[in-house]
Amino acid sequence: MKLALKVTEIEQLSPLVKRFRFEDPKGASLPVFSGGAHITVEMPEGDTIRRNSYSLISDPYDGSGYEIAVRREDRGRGGSLYMHRKLSEGDDITVSTPANLFQLDLRARKHVLIGGGIGITPFLSQLKQLDMEQKPFELHYAARSREEAAGLKLLPKAAHIHVHLSEEGARMDLGAILDGQPMGTHVYTCGPEGLIAAVADQAARLGWPKSTVHSEAFTAPPPGEPFDVVIASTGQTVTVKADQSLLEALEAAKVEINYSCRGGVCGRCRTKVIACEGRILHNDHWLSIEERAAQKDIMPCMSRFKGTRLELDL
């Protein structure tokens, strides 16, 4: 389901990050959600509609509006630039209902949340949920500098919320954070791939069971060189532009396809490859190493292609 909303607030949080608030034009209550949920935002430009998913940062139980924080990616496909340059307060905006691929495991005896840079966003709604549920937690937020740390304006000041600014010499020590946590602790990481891998490594070294280590590597689809795909059912050829994802190109060509996260993590848009002469540039987090190598499946929300022929079972 789609929600037709209005942009009611835009705030510059840091040189690269803006906060947006959306509300129902008639003031109706929006569906509430769970900590860590995201919405997909539609960004129409000319004849294409770009769609990016962003974590909700507002109070999950407050239906009066949705808030997101968007980092400007100057070398991206144009989605964040649209948000930063084209959108003004009072504009119409279409978003999806919330979905959650990064929920808290509410059985945990303790939650350790680790956010790097813009990866702080999913934790902002989770903090509110944890407060309401009165669950023990600690949060670690790592950023390069005070100026870049957009999350500082959104985080409450509390003893269990730790800010690590590397420029000020306070680098995050993952060993110290993870060592000695009580049995039943879960750790959640969101941020750059390097941070996610570092937390996973450290947890594995300390013998944490895999299912207690959670992460979200949500990124918008990357741009790239244009390429063509053939739709098996119709024989139609679809051209994917440099600043368009394969999924967006398929949607523009009115090809039926399922999706949810648009960030390569939920698996909904997985599509069978019928012919592949060339190399699939897998950018998703869904397919295994073996599946990637086989080139029999593609995740159109994130991945691209380089070669002479790619035919999809659509």
Partner: peptide, 10 residues
């Protein structure tokens, strides 16, 4: 013993 154990206990 379980109640006082830390993460990583096998």
């Amino acid at each position: 013993i379980l109640d006082t154990a830390k993460m990583g206990t096998q």
